[in-house]
Amino acid sequence: MKNLIYIFFLFTNLWLSAQDNVKIQIIDSTKIKAKSVFGIDTFGTLYYATANNTFNKKTKDTTITYANFQLGEITAANTFNPLKINLFYKDFNTVIILDNRLAEIFKIDFNTLQPYKNVSFVSTGFDNTLWIFNQDFQHLELYDYKANKVKQKTVPVQSEVLDLKSDYNHCYLLTQNYLYVYNYFGSLISKYKNEGYNSLAFSKAHLVLNNENSLYILSKESAEIKPIAYSNLLINQFLVTNESLYIYDGEILRQYQLKLK
């Protein structure tokens, strides 16, 4: 009898767990050869880098490019604000700001600033600001690059930083120990224990986390991180735009619809 009760509860828990999984449905796929895919907007505009470290903006009709070979490899690109795209070149501790035609409108060389900043992660802030992680002091700074002024800073974190994403209102900092969520004042509003996550993607509505070859989602309408149910795919990179999840395997960029309800 005890064994029957145990089996009942086991299958009940498995069924409930399955119900908690967020489901996805494939709706499109595109072949693309890219070194890194950085973003895709609601109009299908794709931002990516090729093997020669050229940054590309591809629409249905045209592709325009930007290259700065003196700065080497593009470590990260933030396309949240298409009028102020920022490219981060970590090896040279430099950020380039581009307009929507990929024309250079601002250059931030942290090596020449006073005080000097050793930056390891960069993401978009509001107006003329960037969220930057200061490696020497182990804290986030909301940095106004036109005024060369730190507007906000957080308390130092105590473990290795793995990823950083943001929009105008929130900033998500993933470390080995925790996922930290800050508002635009730099105040910590929530944190979650890192259950093996190593990278993240973020849009206005959802945050998606990667744990090896598994994906999880944290919706703005929920305080719970839920697994995403999908067939086992190679995840080279992943992106999220509104209700769409994109998974790139190195050859094909697949678009999935998130089914949250």
Rank of each mutant, 00 (worst) to 15 (best):
G196C: 08
F55R: 01
F137G: 15
S244W: 08
Y89L: 01
A51H: 11
G186F: 01
K193R: 13
T75K: 09
Y89I: 02
K33S: 11
T54A: 04
K226D: 00
L173M: 03
I189Q: 13
P227V: 03
L130Y: 00
A223K: 09
V181D: 00
N111K: 15
Q237I: 02
F238K: 00
E104W: 01
N118E: 11
K35D: 06
K23I: 07
A76Y: 13
L16A: 11
I105P: 07
L245N: 10
Y248L: 03
F133T: 12
N177R: 05
F121E: 11
I5Q: 12
A229H: 06
Q114G: 07
L16T: 11
N148Y: 06
Q257M: 14
I228W: 04
N93Q: 10
F69C: 04
I189P: 05
V22R: 04
F38Q: 01
T154K: 06
N177D: 10
N93E: 08
Y172L: 13
L16D: 07
V150T: 15
S190K: 12
T75E: 14
L14G: 05
F69G: 02
T59N: 10
I24D: 10
L164S: 10
N52C: 01
F110K: 06
V122L: 07
N53M: 01
A51P: 00
V95K: 02
E73S: 11
N148I: 15
K117R: 15
L83I: 02
V22A: 04
D61N: 14
D249V: 03
L83V: 04
N128L: 05
L140K: 00
S17H: 10
R101M: 09
E141S: 02
L245E: 04
N169D: 11
N134V: 03
K107A: 07
A205W: 14
K58C: 09
N111R: 13
Y184E: 07
P82E: 11
L173A: 00
T65G: 06
E224S: 15
I228E: 07
I40W: 05
D20L: 12
Y48Q: 01
D249I: 03
K58E: 05
Y246V: 00
N78E: 12
Y182K: 10
N242D: 13
Y168N: 13
S123A: 12
V95E: 04
N148L: 06
D127A: 14
F133R: 11
T50I: 03
K57M: 13
G125E: 01
D28F: 03
L14E: 15
V157Q: 14
V155R: 05
K31T: 09
T94C: 08
D61F: 01
A18E: 10
Y89E: 02
Q138C: 07
S214W: 03
F137Q: 15
L113R: 15
I228D: 02
N210M: 15
N128V: 02
N183M: 08
I5F: 13
L102V: 12
T241M: 10
V37G: 09
E141H: 06
E160R: 12
A76D: 13
E251I: 05
A229L: 03
Q135I: 02
K204I: 11
K90N: 07
N52Q: 06
K165D: 04
I27V: 09
K31S: 14
Y192F: 15
S36F: 07
Y172F: 15
Q19D: 09
P156E: 01
K117D: 12
F106K: 13
R101V: 11
N213A: 10
L215R: 09
D61W: 03
S187Q: 09
F126P: 04
I225K: 12
F92H: 13
